[in-house]
Simulated assay, not measured.
Amino acid sequence: MKTLISRVIWQWAGVCMLLSLAGCSPGTPKFLAGDLNGVNHTSAAINHFSVNGYGGANISPYGYGGGVCCVMLPSQWSPGLKFKVEWETDPNSTARLPRLGTDEYRAGYAKHKAKYQQHSAIVDIPSYEIGTLCSLKIHFLPCNQVKATTACMAYGQPGYPIKDPIEMKEPAVCPK
């Protein structure tokens, strides 16, 4: 047991040394890391979402989720850069299920989960200054539309670029 603990400590120390040396390497890094946040403007819960495979938190209907570290974006922004957003929605997040652990619960949950919906969108990476990235905020809008910003402020603050209200209704017909 003592040997295992000693080996883990030395491995941890080695990783720390490598990471500290990596931070000292000359040149501009190819990628920047920032928090990944989401804003849900819809009545469906977002069970989970990801940006280029980097996972985000779940988000309640008309709510916020995030502070998940980290999403990686190119260190230098240029026009035409895009990323892929994938998310899963629960259109009835307030469904009542039978008591947990029972056969009725398992059957009810399977029926409920069958209604989850998978979505994806290709989104332009919003501009940001060279070498700086506070966070990437993904806004989920009705009709499976997505907007994104790299603003270094929170949704609703003066100067925040996305002005859509938090509670948006799904139109009868979504635009193509």
Rank of each mutant, 00 (worst) to 15 (best):
C69F: 11
A44E: 14
M168A: 12
R106D: 06
G156Y: 10
Q117S: 07
F31E: 14
E88P: 05
I5Y: 00
Q145T: 05
P91L: 08
L136I: 00
P171M: 11
V51N: 02
H48L: 08
Y54K: 03
P165I: 09
G63T: 06
S43G: 13
M153G: 09
C152P: 11
H112E: 11
V51S: 03
F140I: 01
E88Y: 10
V123M: 02
C143P: 13
K169E: 14
N47P: 07
S20M: 10
D103F: 01
N47I: 14
P171Y: 07
Q76L: 08
S43Q: 15
H112F: 08
R96M: 09
M153H: 03
V173N: 07
V15D: 01
S120Q: 15
C16N: 01
A121N: 06
V85P: 04
L81D: 00
A151W: 11
K84L: 13
S78T: 12
P91G: 09
M17S: 06
T149E: 05
L97K: 03
I130M: 06
C174R: 10
K2L: 08
Q11P: 01
S93H: 09
P158E: 12
W12F: 10
S127A: 14
Q76R: 15
E170W: 01
K147D: 05
M153T: 13
I59S: 05
A114V: 00
S135G: 12
T102D: 09
N92L: 03
R106M: 03
T132W: 13
I130K: 10
A151G: 06
K84F: 02
G80A: 02
W77Q: 05
L21R: 00
G156C: 13
N47A: 09
G23Y: 06
F31T: 11
Y62P: 04
E86K: 14
K176M: 13
G27A: 07
R7T: 05
P26E: 00
F83N: 10
P29G: 01
N144C: 04
I166M: 15
R7H: 07
D164L: 10
L97S: 02
A114S: 14
V123G: 04
A121D: 09
G159F: 11
K111M: 01
A114E: 08
K113C: 05
S50N: 11
L21S: 00
K147W: 04
P175S: 13
M168Q: 13
G38H: 11
K2P: 00
E86P: 03
H119F: 07
L36R: 02
S75F: 14
